[in-house]
Structure formats: C-alpha cells, structure tokens
Write a protein that binds this DNA or RNA. Structure first.
Lengths: 140, 140
DNA sequence: ATTAATGCAAACACTTTGCAATGGA
DNA sequence: TCCATTGCAAAGTGTTTGCATTAAT
C-alpha cells in the first residue's frame, strides 16, 4: 500500500494494523466481489492467526467510512465490493460469478409513486448465463 | 380457499393440509412481502402447534412449484411474494416496507457483454423514503 | 499512555434436517 | 394403506459480540 493511502486512512481515524493493510491490499482493484471467507482465506496466508471476526469487523468499519460496499447479491452470504462508484451487477446463475456493469439511467416510477416516493438510489441486477456456462450447457 | 384452487394444488401434487391451506389463505393477495416469521405468526393463531419448520418447508415446496417467489431484498431474512408475475420493488430504507412496481423495460448491457452474456431476467430495486418517512424525518 | 484492534470462543439469527407420529389421498 | 407432511429438537450457516491481550498512534 502506498503511503498516500496510509495517510488517507489514518486521517479518517482508521487505525492501520498489518492485518488491515493486508485486507486493503487484497481488496485493491479486486473485481471478484469476495465474501468474508474469501478475504479471510487470502489474508490468512500471511497471518495464520487471522480470524474471521477481524475480517468482519474490519469490513464493517470500512463500510461505515464509505470505503467498501456490502452487496446482497448473493442471498447466502455478504459480498464486498471495493468499487464504491455507482454501478450494477450481472450475475451468471450457473457459475455464480458477478460482473460489473455501468450504472443504468434513471428508473421510471409508476404514477402512483412519482413525486411521493423520494428515490435515493436504484440498483439493477441482471441474471443469465455467461459465455463459458452457455458453452458448457450446450455441450450437455 | 375456493375449491377450484384446491383442485389446482392437488393436481400439481401438492398435498393440502389444514396448515397449508391457512398459509395459502394468508398469502392470497398479500402484497406485504412477509417473512417466514410473519407467516408463522399469522398462521399460529389458528394452529398453536404450528412450527416455523413447517412454514419453511411449505414455502420451499411452493417455490419449487412456482407459486411463490423468494425475495432477497432484505439481507437479513427471506421474504416471500405470492405475486409471481414479473415486477420489481421499491424499498423504503427507513420503515423497510416494500412496494411493488411494474417491471422495467429491457436493460442495456455494456458492449463488452452484448451478445455474449445471455440475459434471462433482470431485476430493479429502488431505495429511498416513502411519504410517511419523509414527513417524520422532516419533523425532526 | 491512550485507545482501538486482534482473535478466540461463545452467542446469535435465520434456515435446514432427522425422525417419530400423524393424517391426507 | 401408503406416503407425504407435521412439529419438535438438534444441527448448520453466516455473522456478531464479550473480553483479555496486544499493538498503533
């Protein structure tokens, strides 16, 4: 991790421990939408004593600071996304991989809600089959 | 429950017990997106011995037959929707209520995925504040 | 020196499962 | 009668919390 980044985190009151730096390094540019366990497995290589609880509390702290997103795309477990820019997801229902897509335009509310419901954010999820899984399924 | 409906369920191999009929009656036209516990609480009034396990297995069976949708809108618990027609959801982040909205039109995929990813379904979720919660917040 | 993070274990919430008893078809 | 459903309790997941120890600032 570059020192400018360290500076930034210390400035927002986020204490940088070696474990946290390892987590942040793992997350940097990671587009795989890892679960807590994914993160744990990756970081535990460097820190055999690392615990899942630390991953959870660290990710919770990062989310509070607005540095990661907690995705609920996967109903079974949380997934984290270091890309906090507005974007949406495409999910392959076969291999479960999640791909990023740019944010969609505005969503039209039905008349009954227009001007009544104040929209803060909208989220689009597309489900289908990725190229690899289409190929595999075709062979069957 | 009307007998035509009973006929339909028996025909698809769904054995109708009194508990199941009570669940189906509770679900009929229900737009509140109830959780398993909501359903349990409602039906337990008639059946004091009713168990949550029965609700879960029944809902699982109904989902398999395509008679309810399992929503993952709420990251903490499953919610069920007897409205299996294509539609989307508006969620109030304050009171957590979920409102139905008609399905949106097609979603544009980025060029990199067009013709590569085969879209099966898309889902839109809008988050914001409902009228009541806007009013309450304004008073504070 | 302060104060917060670590990491273990225990607690938690939601959901699923094993199984004997029950009751639809 | 036959086989699925019930409902209890126990097990299973993923996540959170209490707390003494450790370490960052």
């Amino acid at each position: 991790m570059v020192s400018a980044l360290k500076y930034k985190y210390r400035n927002i009151g986020f204490k940088l421990t070696p474990q946290r730096i390892a987590i942040l390094d793992y997350l940097e540019g990671n587009t795989g939408h890892p679960s807590a366990e994914d993160i744990y497995n990756a970081v535990a290589k460097k820190f055999p004593t690392m615990s899942l609880a630390t991953v959870y509390t660290t990710m919770g702290a990062l989310r509070e600071k607005g540095n990661v997103l907690e995705l609920k795309v996967d109903p079974d477990k949380k997934r984290y996304d270091p890309n906090t820019a507005k974007h949406n997801h495409v999910i392959c229902i076969s291999c479960k991989r999640i791909f990023d897509i740019p944010a969609a335009g505005s969503i039209d509310l039905p008349d009954s809600l227009t001007g009544v419901f104040s929209v803060l954010e909208s989220y689009v999820e597309v489900r289908g089959l990725c190229l690899e899984c289409q190929t595999v399924n075709a062979k069957k």
